[in-house]
Structures are given as C-alpha cells and as structure tokens.
C-alpha cells in the first residue's frame, strides 16, 4: 500500500497528490511516470511524476479530475493509501545543453513540465516557460516554474492573463525571442501537443512531446499504448513517452486515445479553442 501524504486542489479540477514511494523517488528522472490505481481491481492510469524528493522518499503527481479513477483519487486525504504506484516508468526526457529551450505546459502539463524545466535550467539552458489555460484562475505552480525559468509567458483563452488565444500563439512567440529557439518541449493534452507541433514544424525547430496514450501495465506487456512514429510502431510506455512531435501520427493517436474513455473528450473540450469544438 502506498501512503498518501497530501492531496490538494491546486486549480479547479486539478489536484496535487503527494505519495510516499521511496524507491520510486530515488530512481525518478524528469519525464518519467508512475502507474496508479485508486483501488484494488481498479483501472491503472499513468501520471507523470511532477516532483519528488529522493531523500524524504516522496513523489508528487498532478492530475485533472475527469473520470472514475481520477474522481476517486480526488477524494483522497493524508493518511489514506492507494494500492499501486509503480514506477518510475518510461524513458527520462533527453536533457543536455541545447541553448534556448521553450517548455510549454497546458493543464496537467504545467506541472509535468516543471522537473524538465528545472533540469534544463541546472544544465545552463535559457529556459522559457509558456503556460496556457482557458483563464488565469486555472494556472498553478507559477512560483515553482518562475524559479526554474528565465522568462514566463502566459496564454489564456479569455485574455485574462498574458496573451489571448490558444497554443497557436507559439507561432508568434518563437520568432519574438531574441537569439532564437533551439528546442521546444510540450507537455499537456494531446490536442495542445499536436497544435503546438503544427506551429513549430514550419519553423523547423525540434519539438519533443510527451505522449499520453492509454496504458495498462506500462512495461511493454500489453501494447495498448502503441503509436506510429516516423512510420514505425512504438510502445509509448517503453519506447517513449517522449517523441519528436513532428514524427507522430496524431490522428491515429487521438482516435486510439478516445477508444475507451468517454471522459477524454472532456479534456479535449476544455483545451480546444471555441471554434473547433
């Protein structure tokens, strides 16, 4: 059993869950995830490890309450426990001194981009964080992100903070950055990642995305997470979850993503711009 240390709502419908999982915390690297179960025999869902403390032995995941399992997770309180938190799974994000890196986060991705931004900053990259949401009250973790970035840019659908619009703002943000951009990393729902990639493709900037496919085991056993990348079949859990976004077959990904979870359309609806609903 995995003890729950803390569960708080950081923005409407977005929750922060801190768990005691010492072995996971000791091995975690930016970009890896855990598979959680809210209860015995329940669904297994992947969530990115958004923060951790190897010494104290805890990990933090941030999730959006959309379906049955996240609904149960959202009711947890300190002192409760959950049956499963297996990880850290997946490959770590590729890190290095790239120069200027834009880290983009939307919904839960605002949290999951944080450890990546932090590591890139430690490796002396110029880190620019771009966060997007429907409205300013949906932002969270801004202090943490500010500390790990050289600049922060906000995009809101309603214009309540920063730029007005959605992720396609990236197309105008990038050219405005002096000295150019060497790499873009996008975390968030598949829609945000796909649209973001459309913006960076014509600019020829390498763009890494962290795919969220359906998963069961997270170890390469079931194949439910398969995606087509650059024409070849990959298992997101073991070959990814990070891929070059310009090589991902997005249509296939989004249709596979929606195969089971009616609730996924909720995620899409909350992040797709008005006219595209």
């Amino acid at each position: 059993m995995i003890p729950v240390l803390e569960r708080t709502m950081v923005a409407p419908n977005i929750h922060n869950l801190r768990l005691q999982a010492p072995d996971v915390a000791r091995s975690a690297k930016p970009g890896q995830f855990v598979i959680l179960q809210a209860e015995e025999d329940g669904e297994r869902i992947p969530l990115t490890i958004s923060d951790w403390d190897a010494e104290k032995g805890d990990i933090t995941v941030v999730f959006m309450q959309v379906g049955a399992t996240t609904g149960k997770l959202a009711l947890l309180k300190a002192g409760d426990s959950i049956p499963t938190a297996a990880g850290p799974l997946g490959n770590p994000m590729e890190l290095g001194n790239f120069g200027t890196v834009i880290c983009v986060g939307g919904c839960y991705g605002i949290a999951s981009i944080y450890p990546i931004a932090r590591a890139l900053k430690e490796m002396n990259n110029r880190v620019i964080c771009v966060v997007e949401a429907r409205s300013s009250f949906l932002f969270y973790w801004q202090e943490k992100l500010r500390k790990t970035s050289d600049e922060m840019i906000f995009i809101t659908r309603d214009g309540s903070l920063g730029r007005r619009g959605h992720i396609n703002n990236l197309g105008s943000i990038i050219p405005s950055i002096k000295g150019g951009v060497d790499r873009v990393i996008i975390n968030g729902c598949n829609y945000v990642m796909m649209r973001g990639c459309e913006e960076t493709r014509p600019l020829g900037i390498k763009t890494i995305v962290s795919l969220n496919t359906l998963m069961i085991d997270g170890t390469g056993m079931c194949g439910v997470c398969r995606v087509t990348v650059n024409g070849s079949n990959k298992f997101a859990c073991v070959d990814g979850p990070h891929f070059d976004g310009h090589e991902v077959n997005w249509d296939e990904l989004s249709s596979r993503r929606q195969a089971y979870l009616r609730e996924e359309t909720v995620t899409l609806r909350t992040s797709a711009p008005e006219k595209e609903r």
Partner: peptide, 26 residues
C-alpha cells in the same frame, strides 16, 4: 515472455485491435 507480437499487416493500430495480453489482462 511478455512482449506481444503483431503481424506485419496494415491496420494494426485501428481501435478494436488488441494483443492477447491486453485483452486477457483487461
């Protein structure tokens, strides 16, 4: 031996195509 094989034929990633592992695990 838990890594499932698929035939190399078109259409493997359509919805409703499973590995036995996925189907039975579910």
């Amino acid at each position: 031996a838990g890594l499932p094989w698929f035939m190399e034929i078109p259409g493997n990633n359509l919805n409703g195509v499973y590995s036995a592992n996925e189907y039975l695990t579910r």
